[in-house]
């Protein structure tokens, strides 16, 4: 549950989930909505996937993301959007970004 709260604490990730409500999208289609670098978006996707809020379906070289929220998670997302659930320092995202940089 902690992973879910962490995933929902970031406005970018919440926006990703909102976008996925209208249908499944590829990583590229999602990234086009944000003015952030590819590795940062990739780290956001990793956090969402690890929290079980999205499912990734690999089709050839593209990854298609599908929303995978339970009713409780859906309600939490709505709550976070209305009241804001932001934290100043996202250690998990930082760690994910560090890993991304190590790989590249």
């Amino acid at each position: 549950m902690n992973k879910v709260f962490k995933a929902l604490s970031d406005p970018t990730r919440r926006r990703v989930l909102q976008l996925l409500r209208s249908g499944s999208m590829t990583a590229g289609e999602l990234a086009a909505h944000f003015a952030v670098s590819g590795p940062t978006m990739s780290a956001h996707f990793t956090v969402l996937r690890e929290a079980g809020l999205v499912e990734a379906d690999k089709q050839g070289r593209t990854i298609r993301y599908i929303l995978n929220l339970s009713v409780l998670e859906d309600a939490l997302l709505g709550f976070a959007q209305v009241f804001g659930l932001e934290i100043t320092h996202d250690a998990e995202l930082d760690a994910a970004l560090d890993n991304t940089e190590e790989v590249t």
């Binding site: 996925l20 209208s22 249908g23 079980g52 995978n68 929220l69 339970s70 859906d74």
Partner: peptide, 20 residues
């Protein structure tokens, strides 16, 4: 009801478009 939306979302597991 809570877990119902989390079952079988992959394209191979559903009859129609996964988001639908």
């Amino acid at each position: 009801g809570n877990f119902m939306p989390k079952t079988g979302n992959r394209p191979s597991e559903v009859c129609c478009e996964p988001s639908e």
